[in-house]
Design a binder for these strands. Structure first.
Lengths: 340, 340
DNA sequence: CTGAAAGCGCTTACAG
DNA sequence: CTGAAAGCGCTTACAG
């Protein structure tokens, strides 16, 4: 492996100048810079990250901990996130060190990776309320960025969608169409995004004097959406509209309505939040789904950019990004059915 | 962060001696060693891995590239593999750098990671025949270990199960039970494990003068197993026994038999290869599945150990491990039904 | 049994 | 615009 010393030797330059030429310092003579670049190229020079890290105190690596369930499964959206993340990191010549958390203690995996002393910062996702990982990382004074937020008005960098507004937008749409019996099929409330969806739903319903009589939490699978909706639709005074946590859950809800002989949107309206995953596309539903849309693939790049900026010394509060999902009207929502 | 220098200063010792005491060199006076250890403990000393790596020339990191499909999904067994891998690596104080390959060129992601110059070696999985990644890594002279093999008699370190024997064991079992019309519902033959399963099947059938009349490749989902079996069972002179690529595929095959009004094992026998994934457990089938069993979770530790050994200079040929799956007889196999 | 010195490959004041 | 020197924290011949 070529080193700065070798390049310098070839050209009769000091390692200092070679280093500066390669790192784009302005005071280097352009002719010198060109020669250095050419020689570096020819020798196949690659900076030794380890040496750089020793002197700069930064490793050019960030850590991410993947939470694995006891049955060795994990969030399916991870692959999409991972893909975007590594691509965005590569643009900053930064690599991703991945570790796994299958511990009871959510902090343990972070502690272990930190002890090994090789990451500059962390990317966290799926925060719970007052997430203990955040207290720990703050205490250790190590930079991090969150996909999501673990509290209101946090002081750390984050990228999040406004999950509260996701629910209020959905309820507002349905209420304006005349619906009064509106159900929420929500995701996991162990996470703040689930809590925020529920809170937004309750607030929007209360704001219109509607009773939040149908709320099911912790539905992540199509089957769970199906079952929850089937139960509700079998009751007297069943809901006429559903707010669904995801397009996957919406698929189950739609099937349940069909199995009850109900048509969409004549008898039942459905709104879903759409992460725009390639597997379950809202426009491929029949009828196409009305959604609040905020593609998951949009998250990795800003997340990475926020973290990199903070690692370079930017203020955390300058790297907090809240995105409002876009409401897209399609065929799955319509006026409340007239009472027969 | 405490350093060797600080410990030495406290005790009036040189960093040399402190280093040797902490690293267990035999020539250190025991009393000195005890003092050094105590002080290191008290100061919360953690060796600076980056500095260690600069001087030893090793990064303490290995790379792995995850292949992502165009729809952003990936092999579900990845999470299990990843969990075992990071745990095994941690035992050697080694970390995992993960990157993603969504490229047409399978070598590209390796090249990029290598350019960044931070991994000591690679762990590869899912090899295809004469895998181009292997030619590339050999050319670059960078150590790697394979989960699987891309050719017969390779010269690199690997951990693999004998996929050829998986098929021959299954066919032998069924043939000895009198079955002559035996079907293979095989996995993806773009990979060598799929090719080996098919080759073993064909060879075992030929060895008994049986025609390999029912072979379906590239079945990975339950639904694909179901469809393939349903098609076969709808023909005249349908197979009486199925060799299944996985327990998941076997679930589909079993359902197809049921839907055709056939009972197991009276009318149809089923053998599956069992990676012992927590999601689809062979003993929970009804009847319990007869399997060739080789838990996927057994692979990461030997893989890591082989790679670490080779990184320390061991000969590749001393770290080639071929494991034979265990044949476990359960309720899904029985004698061939007598001709009515 | 212990220490002074060299060096891993780089960055960055400091000096010219 | 360029270079000599110091130093990041460690390991390891070499010397005593």
């Amino acid at each position: 492996m070529a080193t700065l010393k070798q390049i310098g030797k070839e050209l009769g330059l000091s390692v200092t100048t070679v280093s500066r030429a390669l790192n784009g310092f302005p005071e280097v003579n352009e002719a010198t810079r060109v020669k250095v670049r050419e020689t570096a190229e020819r020798l196949g020079y690659r900076p030794n990250r380890i040496a750089q890290r020793l002197v700069t105190g930064r490793s050019g690596m960030v850590g991410m901990i993947l939470k694995i369930k006891p049955d060795m499964s994990a969030d399916q959206t991870f692959f999409q996130t991972l893909t975007g993340m590594t691509a965005a990191l590569a643009a900053h010549e930064t690599d991703l060190v991945l570790a796994v958390d299958q511990d009871a203690d959510p902090v343990q995996a972070y502690r272990k990776l930190l002890e090994r002393n090789i990451v500059d910062g962390f990317i966290l996702n799926a925060p719970v309320r007052d997430d203990p990982r955040i207290a720990y990382l703050k205490d250790q004074n190590i930079p991090f960025v969150l996909h999501g937020r673990d509290r209101d008005a946090p002081d750390y960098p984050f990228y999040d969608i406004d999950n509260h507004a996701v629910s209020t937008d959905a309820v507002d749409l349905l209420a304006n169409l005349g619906h009064r019996r509106i159900a929420l099929i929500n995701g996991e409330v162990q996470y703040t995004f689930g809590l925020d969806r529920e809170a937004g739903f309750r607030q929007a319903m209360a704001g219109r004097d509607l009773a939040p009589g149908w709320i099911v939490n912790d539905a992540t699978l199509e089957q769970q959406g199906y079952q929850a909706a089937l139960d509700m639709l079998s009751q007297a005074n069943a809901p006429t509209a559903f707010v669904c946590f995801s397009t996957l859950v919406a698929a189950g809800v739609m099937q349940a309505a069909r199995d009850k002989g109900l048509s969409i949107p004549k008898d039942v309206s459905i709104v879903a939040h759409d992460d725009a995953l390639p597997q379950t596309r809202a426009i491929e539903f029949n009828p196409a789904l009305t959604v609040t849309r905020a593609p998951l693939r949009d998250a990795p790049e800003p997340l990475v950019n926020h973290l990199i900026s903070v690692l370079r010394g930017a203020a955390a509060t300058d790297h907090q990004q809240l995105v409002r999902a876009e409401l897209i009207l399609r065929g799955s929502t319509g006026p409340v059915p007239s009472v027969p």
